[in-house]
Design a protein around this nucleic acid. Structure first.
Lengths: 209, 209
DNA sequence: AGCTATCTTAACACAGTTTGACGATAAACG
DNA sequence: CGTTTATCGTCAAACTGTGTTAAGATAGCT
């Protein structure tokens, strides 16, 4: 199991497998096959088997995969079988939506601190937490020992916020600001910008309506 | 200019270029180079030049690119220089956040109809629009001539909603439901699932804190 | 026991993507 | 008006990822 050289693209597919397996388990589907998963995910069955083989042998020849077992293995591989603490920077509309996003709770991701630099917001409550001044960002992150940060500030401030999160010890950033962050390669970034998604789709649309 | 065989991965990068150019233009930066863009985006300069060369010659040797000109060209290529109408399905918490997401307005994407299947929500107002029954989805989409749909319903209903949107004439779907949609290849899908992003990052994190 | 389905693995070919190198050229400058 | 400098556009090589095939293994079914 040479886990160090698993291609990143494979790691990005694993959560999709986990999501499909979780759905199967919830509908009491106890066994599945690479072909069934492939049909659900729109990926080839060979690719699924190959991806999984990076991490071990999870299936039984002739039978396929036991859903709960494979799901648990993927949860272990992705470290999705444990609780994660996160800090949120930015308590605007987007920050509010993120705090209330139910899927985080369901998957055991918990926001444990919220920061903003607007004096009007500091001290207020949001999702049971008191909004703290952005000055405290670095020290608070270090104190809490948090590894994941969520950025929901305007684009102009995102890079600086990211750097401060990293100085506090954050190693993974979920970035909702519409800007490309420039960070050390040992820090993981996942950016979410719906407009980027829309623009790459409208490229293909008809110039009408 | 053989626009038909532009790799999809190139099309997915164009919005990032556009975003960077828009930011440069807003700070009155009139000229840039592939190297400057590369440094901002964390992409190689050769790649940027090659990507742009699929669509024409936009720069001047020795000089680089004129920011407003290249920005406008990218807006034209991506059809980001016009207004787009969208319909939203799902008026829960997520749907509310999407309606209030300011970046859509700023980039001229407008939600023109909202649907839900919850009788308690139908008839209520959201963002100036009356929430309509999901029964009307197909016919209303067809009547409005909308090409873009946003899905913000529970995972279990997302596939069926997507199929109805498509029957109504939708050609591009922004999918916030945590499920892989299985759709005809001529329909574009962009899925946003923050949990998938987090899981692919936690794979790389330390098993601590 | 034989049959069927399906996994595991490996090798390889193919396709797609990225990178590096290089000639071309526009502006600046003496 | 030639030289220098910066930077583009493009080609080809290198690299990465995907798909295919084939061989071997095995669990369950008849």
């Amino acid at each position: 199991m040479a886990l160090t050289d698993v291609p990143e693209i494979v790691v990005r597919r694993l959560p999709l497998y986990l999501r499909a397996l979780t759905a199967l388990a919830e509908s009491n589907h106890l066994v599945t096959s690479s072909q069934e998963l492939a049909a659900r995910l729109g990926i080839s069955s060979a690719q699924i088997r190959k991806d999984l083989s990076y991490f071990g042998e999870f299936g039984k020849q002739g039978m396929g995969y036991e859903v709960p077992y494979l799901r648990d293995q993927l949860r272990r591989i992705l470290q999705a079988d444990r609780h994660w603490s996160m800090v949120l920077v930015g308590a605007g509309d987007l920050g509010h939506a993120i705090v209330n996003y139910a899927s985080f709770k369901r998957w055991d991701y918990e926001i444990v601190a919220i920061f903003d630099n607007d004096p009007a917001k500091i001290g207020r409550k949001l999702g049971g937490l008191t909004i703290r001044p952005a000055d405290e960002l670095e020290s608070a992150v270090r104190e809490l020992g948090v590894q994941i940060g969520i950025i929901a500030v305007p684009a102009a401030q995102a890079q600086a916020v990211a750097e401060r999160l990293i100085r506090g010890g954050v190693r993974a950033i979920l970035n909702y600001a519409p800007v490309s962050l420039n960070l050390p390669s040992d820090v993981r970034v996942h950016s979410i910008d719906p407009v980027v998604g829309l623009q790459s789709m409208t490229y293909y649309l008809n110039p009408s309506s």
